[in-house]
Simulated assay, not measured.
Amino acid sequence: MPELVRLYLRNVALGLLLSLVFVGALLWLNVANLWHLVTSTGEGPIAVVMLVMFNAVVFSGVQFGIAVMRMAEPEGSGPGGCKTPEPVAQPATPGTLIPVTAGARAPHRPRRA
């Protein structure tokens, strides 16, 4: 199995585990009277399964994003990454436009009392 697929499946499993812990904590702490709502209706188990699955999708996506971002090389170990190169001064030839910085001032507004 390719390494990337293994990484994805590992993060999906971790996201599912986090989702189970999160939904268990929601039910155990009875947030928004959720325990009573789930146990007193016939559709309660379906709601718990939906909560677990939807939270698993979110947590898995976050875990996979973190794992992919952590795969980057440490800063300073490569050729420099996406740093913008410093401008090189070149002699101006006739007809070449040279950029010049210009200051701008905002108009003065009197304070309101």
Rank of each mutant, 00 (worst) to 15 (best):
V5E: 11
L7D: 02
L7Q: 03
L7T: 03
L7Y: 03
L7S: 05
Y8H: 11
Y8A: 07
L9H: 05
R10T: 09
N11Y: 01
V12A: 05
V12N: 00
A13T: 02
A13I: 01
A13F: 02
A13L: 07
A13S: 06
L14P: 01
L14A: 10
L14F: 11
G15R: 02
L16C: 06
L16M: 07
L16E: 04
L17N: 10
L17C: 05
L17D: 06
L18N: 09
S19G: 04
S19L: 04
S19V: 05
S19Y: 01
L20S: 03
L20I: 05
V21L: 15
G24C: 06
G24R: 09
A25L: 15
A25T: 15
A25M: 12
A25W: 10
L27M: 11
L27G: 13
W28Q: 14
N30I: 06
V31W: 12
V31C: 03
V31P: 06
A32R: 14
A32Q: 11
A32D: 15
N33Q: 12
L34E: 09
L34N: 04
W35P: 06
W35Q: 12
H36N: 10
V38T: 04
T39Q: 05
T39R: 01
T39L: 02
S40T: 11
S40R: 04
S40L: 08
T41C: 07
T41W: 03
T41E: 13
G42N: 13
G44Q: 00
G44P: 01
G44Y: 00
P45S: 13
P45M: 02
P45W: 00
I46A: 15
A47S: 15
V48L: 04
V48Y: 00
V49F: 08
L51G: 12
L51V: 01
V52P: 00
V52L: 08
M53P: 04
M53S: 11
F54Q: 14
F54M: 09
N55Q: 14
N55C: 10
A56S: 08
A56R: 03
V57Y: 07
V58S: 10
V58K: 12
F59V: 04
F59P: 03
F59K: 02
F59T: 07
G61H: 02
G61S: 05
G61F: 01
Q63E: 15
F64M: 13
F64Y: 14
